[in-house]
Design a protein around this nucleic acid. Structure first.
Length: 288
DNA sequence: TGCCCCCTGCAG
DNA sequence: CTGCAGGGGGCA
């Protein structure tokens, strides 16, 4: 559920579905993914659900929080007492799957009969149970940069401009700007008509300004479309439904398709630091 | 700053 | 079989 829009979508759904509900039992299927004492959240109820960059924080009564990073393949699915998924709509056909599944790592049971499953195929994610008043001291959060809409353009420029590496890697660095991952990085660079390998310190103020706007535009679009579900469908909503941003992607996973600017460009794919990178060769030319 | 690593699973 | 996947930590 990787990037900011996906986590934000689930954050909102969790807050709506679980506020005030009491945790009655927790089953840890994969102990290595969990730190802290699970017993500390028993009988506590959910108060608020926060998000910092790509991290989700579920605050409970009793000064206890559950902090979750989904990494590449983590997901949360809520099943109601009657076995139905929450929220309206019809479950995607892709999600006619019994839970807990082979990928379920932690199961949270609620007093009202609801069950929340944390699934993670690749075991990269983590869950930390800790006092709410110590969450901010987590190393990951302490070093987290601001979200792109929370800083003035001159602050954004100074953060970006001093880096002597490819601009794509700079915006993927959570300590510089938080929330951007590979999908939205590719699309934001297209929005700003920048080549991903341009060295950050070579960018002009005007280019960096366009980039900040581009990042904000694609992240907000991602939230509007409730996240991007890639072909392998590991990101899903709390109710198992799929995000739809992928249908609106600018360049991500559009190899061979036409540039949305209709400039005659055909989207190309290559690797930057080992990560899939997509550009329109016409409007995202490499600068010298 | 760049490489390797953590893992599983799927497409080519 | 190899390569690749919404992330990021540790190491030189």
């Amino acid at each position: 559920m990787p990037e900011l829009p996906e986590v934000e979508t689930v954050r909102g759904q969790l807050a709506k579905a679980l506020s005030g509900h009491t945790i009655s039992e927790v089953i840890v299927h994969a102990p290595r993914m969990v730190t802290g004492e699970v017993k500390d959240i028993l009988k506590q109820s959910i108060q608020t659900v926060r998000r910092f960059g790509k991290v989700l924080v579920i605050d409970c009564t009793g000064n206890i929080s559950v902090v979750i990073h989904f990494k590449m393949s983590g997901q949360l699915i809520l099943i109601q007492k009657d076995g139905k998924r929450i929220a309206g709509g019809h479950p995607s056909a892709d999600w006619v799957q019994a839970l807990p599944s082979a990928h379920t790592r932690v199961t949270f049971l609620f007093a009202n009969g609801d069950t929340l499953y944390f699934n993670d195929q690749r075991f990269f994610g983590w869950i930390k149970i800790m006092p709410t008043d110590t969450v901010a001291e987590l190393s990951y959060l302490k070093h987290l940069g601001p979200e792109p809409w929370d800083i003035a353009d001159d602050d954004f420029f100074s953060r970006i401009h001093k880096k002597n590496k490819a601009i794509k890697l700079v915006i993927l660095d959570q300590e510089i700007i938080s929330g951007v991952g590979n999908i939205y990085a590719n699309d934001a660079l297209w929005e700003a008509s920048l080549h991903p390998e341009t060295i950050a310190k070579q960018l002009t103020k005007e280019q960096v300004s366009r980039l900040q706007s581009g990042i904000i535009t694609v992240l907000k679009d991602g939230i509007r479309y409730k996240g991007a579900t890639a072909a392998d469908a590991k990101y899903v909503h709390l109710d198992g439904m799929l995000g739809t941003y992928q249908h609106h992607a600018r360049v991500y996973d559009r190899t061979g398709e036409s540039c949305r600017r209709n400039d005659g460009g055909i989207i190309e794919k290559f690797a930057v630091a080992g990560r899939g990178t997509y550009i329109c060769p016409v409007c995202q030319k490499k600068q010298s």
